[in-house]
Design a protein around this nucleic acid. Structure first.
Length: 551
RNA sequence: GGCCAGUUGGUGAAGUGGCUUAACACACUGCCCUUUCACGGCAGCAUUCAUGGGUCCGAAUCCCAUACUGGUCACCA
């Protein structure tokens, strides 16, 4: 029996050839230098921060070069797939405004001419390639059970030999085709392995876009191509899909670096042009015991991109943060060009860090604070509502009920050169403005400071209310009256006066205005008091200053 | 254990043989400004680039060794 007959025995239903697929998926008609890249996750749950980073870059580079960015689903391992996994990925990408040109757009819909873009739907294509390999003595069926391969491994470990299915360890490699066909006809279970033409003593060199030149021994492992369920393993799927989908750039995590010799070998065997590779450092997390590890889906909530949606951290802020990790020159560029967006920035693989960086929540929050501080009040209002719709219905209703009032609240100390930076996330907004709403200003806990005697507090409040408060006052008048209250009750009306003669006064203007502030808001730290009082209005001010009296 | 890579302050990093007594940003500390907070301003925060050796007039930058960290060695991706 020759190899071709063996191939037909194993894949009797495969009638197309590789050439057929080359015609079905012709070279893309793109400009020179156009990058075709992809995001190719497994539907294992949610999108990870590290995946988002690579998706962001993989989508950005085609955008810069008039190329194509597509989404492919790698679901060849049924055990890992999760219900609604595909939809989760699509939603996460949508949330982060990462748009695809081709690929899977919903559980049931795919767009583009190079599909299907879900690997489990491409079984025949993979098998066509493997059939070719078998027919050309470059692959063979392997009947070893998992127990047997484990056993080989144990022996190799004990003997301190290189681990893997290669050389004389590859028991099924040199079986005769007759024996192979007999065992297949006999119903023995098998997988398909590559008959690796490599030699471990030879070297292969690859130019990685971020890591530069890397040298490896050639692959001589007879890696598994097709599993017993007929579906391919990653290595084969990578070759077939990225060739047929005409991918020019492979962006993936650094955990793939060591598979490079396999992938290079596969491309060489088929005489396909190898794509360019960029292996990205993984995002790390430091534990309390100072050990570094990969940011983990299970242990770290911030690893899931849905976390940012929940917290209400603007997607732009997350993307800006990821770009500062991705390209070290981005941050300086962004600070120098505050009105530009990520789209205006030219990404460079060379500027990528090779080692994984630690995930820095402080930095992210700083970026987010700055970002939100630059938004217009109406934008803050709308985006807070959008967030609250999912996560805080009470806040949502208040914002809708008091629309103009709320927008004015968001505008306090905003329209100025250096706006306030109170909010790092939309989930923090309620805790910053709640006291402006009567519905929330109940059973409050007053944080009085230096003046905490209730009689003195009332004296200040009542004097202010009865003699000085006028809602029409401008800020200057308002504050000069505040000084008069202080003076009349024996407090220094200027801070400097108090500092010169502290014994002459009961306290200073700051102590007095603090009483008003706390009486009105219950808090000792608020934005500008004058602005707050303007919005609170006469009625509410009267009411709130008088509640204290009752207490 | 084999193979591959990485190692510059608390963090992200700039730096590719002299311009570096190591930029910038975050965090932190102190002071100032100030009716609180925030903003802002000023100052501090690596005499040293994992360690040891070498090349050189000169090294964070080049070479070697060691250490440590990470990745990988599945019918997972």
């Amino acid at each position: 029996m020759n190899n071709k007959e063996l191939a037909n025995l194993i894949f009797p239903d495969i009638t197309k050839t590789i050439e057929d697929y080359e015609k079905i998926y012709p070279a893309r008609n793109l400009n020179e230098g156009a990058v075709v890249s992809r995001f190719a996750p497994s539907p294992t749950g949610f999108v990870h921060m590290g995946s988002l980073l690579s998706a962001l870059i993989a989508s950005k580079v085609p955008k810069e070069t008039n190329g194509i960015f597509y989404l492919r689903i790698e679901d060849t391992d049924g055990k890992r797939s999760v219900e609604n996994g595909i939809q989760g990925i699509i939603d996460d990408l949508k949330n982060f405004e990462i748009n695809i040109d081709e690929g899977v757009v919903s559980e049931t819909k795919q767009i583009g001419n190079y599909g299907p873009y879900i690997q489990s739907e491409r079984k025949e294509i993979y098998q066509t390639f493997v059939k070719y390999l078998i027919a050309n003595d470059l692959a063979y069926p392997c009947f070893c059970t998992e127990e047997e391969t484990n056993e080989i491994r144990t022996i190799q470990e004990a003997a301190k030999e290189r681990i893997g299915y290669y050389g004389h360890w590859a028991k099924c490699r040199n079986l005769s085709n007759e024996e192979r066909s007999n065992r297949i006809k006999n119903g023995d279970k098998y997988i398909i392995r590559l008959k690796s033409p490599g030699n471990f003593n030879n070297k292969v060199v690859i130019e990685d876009l971020v890591r530069g030149r890397i040298e490896f021994p050639e692959n001589d492992l007879d890696i598994v191509l097709i599993k017993s369920d007929g579906l391919p393993l990653y290595h084969l799927a990578h070759l077939v899909d990225d060739h047929l989908m005409r991918t020019t750039h492979i962006l993936r995590g650094e955990e793939w670096v060591s598979s490079l010799p396999v992938h290079l070998q596969l491309f060489k065997i088929f005489n396909f042009k190898t794509p360019k590779y960029a292996h990205l450092g993984v995002i790390m997390k430091i534990d309390d015991d100072q050990t570094r590890r990969k940011l983990s889906k299970r242990k770290d909530p911030e690893a899931a991109v849905s976390y940012y949606h929940e917290k209400g951290i603007p997607v732009e802020a997350v993307k800006i943060y990821l770009m500062t990790i991705a390209n070290s020159n981005f941050e300086a560029w962004y600070n120098a060009n505050p009105n530009k967006t990520i789209d205006d920035f030219t990404f460079s693989f060379k500027k990528m860090s090779e080692s994984g960086s630690l995930f820095d929540v402080d930095k992210l929050m700083n970026i987010s604070k700055n970002y939100i501080s630059k938004l217009k009040a109406i934008e803050v209002y709308e985006r807070t509502i959008k967030w609250a719709k999912f996560y805080d219905q009470q806040l949502e209703q208040l914002l809708i009920k008091y629309q103009d009032y709320s927008i004015k609240i968001f505008n306090i100390e905003r329209e100025q050169k250096k706006p306030r930076k109170d909010f790092g996330a939309f989930c923090e907004i309620k805790s910053g403005i709640w006291y402006m709403y009567d519905e929330l200003f109940i059973n409050v806990d007053y944080q009085f400071q230096t003046i905490s005697d209730i009689n003195e507090i009332n004296k200040i409040n009542q004097l202010y209310l009865s003699k000085y408060y006028n809602e029409l006052d401008d800020k200057e008048t308002w504050f000069s009256k505040m000084r008069l209250v202080a003076f009349e009750l024996g407090y220094a009306k200027e801070m400097s006066d108090y500092k010169e003669n502290p014994d002459k006064y009961k306290g200073h203007i700051g102590d007095v205005s603090m009483v008003i502030r706390v009486s009105l808001t219950s808090l000792s730290a608020t934005p500008d008091l004058y602005e707050i009082m303007k919005l609170l209005g006469k009625e509410r001010i009267n009411q709130r200053l008088n509640i204290i009296k009752v207490k």
